[in-house]
């Protein structure tokens, strides 16, 4: 139960932020957290809180995966790489050839979610391919 106390602020914020499907459970001394946030801001807020409670995530006692409900096919997503361009690949995997690039902060279209890691996207120039989902954020 100690983990639930340690991360109580995180869980309380998640509950109060409209994450209706919030799930959390302690498994093998790690607090597993899952849920779908109504927008990217709330997802980022939760990660900020987590980082405050456990700076640089060094304890490793939480595994949190917060999806964003607005990340559905046909919506606009923003490239959130650190400063480099985002590779657009022919297929879902880093072993796939690069067919295009999207700049940091560029807004592109989410065509479909191939899986949790790889999303099919289209740029304004009509380039289509797969990008790593962690570098895409729904524009809310």
């Amino acid at each position: 139960m100690a983990l639930l106390d340690k991360y109580q602020v995180l869980l309380d914020t998640a509950k109060a932020s409209g994450i209706d499907d919030l799930q959390y459970e302690e498994q093998e001394s790690v607090l597993q957290i899952r849920g779908t946030a109504p927008n990217a801001d709330i997802k980022n807020k939760l990660w900020d809180i987590y980082n405050q409670i456990d700076p640089n995530f060094l304890s490793g006692d939480v595994v949190m995966d917060i999806d964003v409900s607005t990340a559905v096919a046909g919506t606009q997503v923003k490239v959130i790489t650190q400063n480099s361009n985002l590779n657009i690949r022919k297929g879902p995997g880093t072993d796939q050839p690069i067919v295009g690039k999207a700049a940091k902060d560029e807004i592109i279209t989410l065509v479909s979610r191939a899986n949790d890691q790889w999303w099919l996207v289209r740029t304004k120039d009509g380039e289509e391919g797969y990008c790593y989902a962690q570098y895409l954020e729904p524009v809310s």
């Binding site: 790690v30 640089n56 490793g60 595994v63 995966d65 949790d116 890691q117 962690q134």
Partner: peptide, 10 residues
């Protein structure tokens, strides 16, 4: 974390 491991030890 998005890969749903049992733990991420950093």
């Amino acid at each position: 974390d998005a890969l749903h491991p049992k733990k991420v030890d950093m």
